[in-house]
């Protein structure tokens, strides 16, 4: 967010995405390009079976830019959005998808197993704000995720690109997703660039445990560190995030010895005593 306050702090989404803001989605080439890039990446991360046309839900479909990407790849989609003006732009654009005017925080109005996958581009962070008197963000997030989970085929994925305001928002969002039954985690593209960095919450609805794809723009040699954070196990997650074992642990010592060896230093051979506490000397 280059200029000033975040959109979510200015107004509720149905007000913020007014006629003027909606028009930008047809006229501002930078906005259009970014939305398309994010959509294409989200669809790629869905990893749908090759050459198969699928039935996809687009959450916060807005003006239909993301939907157009789905259509281009041969998929049939339904979009949900809370801004009437954005949906009107989608109609003007003659989108192929069916459009629903609704609030994702009120749930996903579909019967079980309707969709082969779901995407969302720059929308779900809006759920972290309480815009109405009765709004309780954790409850709305849970409602959203649990009904999304039910509306997906078993084994289907949801890829949600988001702009969390801070780490506690991200924590809240992922927590509610896991509570609703999803597994999966975060894929971060270009984690070392403040501008290009993009986050995709990749969620799996049941089926076998699947590996997360790597983020873009990350060092291939460090593939296991920093670029994606799996949420299957909290401890594991903290370890992955830091990429380092706790200080003075056996793993920490082994890693340090390894580093020294690589630097050509003289290092004692590893043994079963490595990293153990020594008995006190008298």
């Amino acid at each position: 967010m280059a200029s000033g306050k975040r959109p979510e702090h200015r107004a509720p989404p149905e007000i913020y995405y007014n006629e003027e803001e909606a028009r930008k989605y047809t006229s501002n080439s930078r906005i259009i390009e970014i939305q398309q890039q994010l959509s294409e990446r989200a669809i790629e991360l869905l990893r749908l079976p090759e050459d198969q046309c699928c039935f996809i839900l687009d959450i916060g479909c807005g003006s239909g830019l993301s939907g157009e990407c789905l259509t281009e790849q041969g998929h049939v989609w339904v979009g949900l959005d809370i801004s009437r003006h954005m949906l009107d732009v989608a109609v003007l654009r003659e989108c192929e998808g069916d459009l629903i005017y609704g609030d994702m925080g009120q749930g996903i109005p579909f019967r079980a197993g309707s969709f082969d996958g779901a995407i969302s581009v720059s929308a779900i962070q809006w759920l972290c704000n309480a815009d109405k008197k009765g709004h309780h963000p954790p409850k709305r997030l849970y409602k959203f995720f649990s009904m999304l989970y039910a509306s997906l085929n078993r084994g289907a994925k949801a890829v949600l690109q988001l702009y969390p305001e801070n780490s506690s928002q991200l924590e809240l969002i992922t927590q509610q997703a896991m509570r609703a039954g999803f597994t999966g985690g975060l894929v971060v593209d270009y984690p070392n660039s403040t501008k290009a960095k993009k986050m995709f919450l990749c969620l799996f609805s049941g089926g076998s445990v699947q590996e997360l794809p790597p983020g873009l723009g990350t060092d291939v040699n460090n593939a296991d560190q920093s670029q994606h954070v799996a949420y299957s196990d909290k401890r594991e997650r903290v370890k992955n995030m830091r990429g380092k074992p706790p200080k003075k642990s056996r793993d920490w010592i082994l890693e340090k010895k390894e580093r020294r060896k690589r630097q050509g230093k003289d290092v004692r051979a590893d043994s079963k005593y490595t990293g153990r506490r020594r008995a006190r000397k008298f």
Binding site: G102, D103, K133
Partner: peptide, 14 residues
């Protein structure tokens, strides 16, 4: 209307 289905609920229906 205009092909768009309105499923927005009032707060007391949620």
């Amino acid at each position: 209307s205009n092909g768009i289905l309105n499923m927005l609920l009032n707060e007391d229906e949620v």
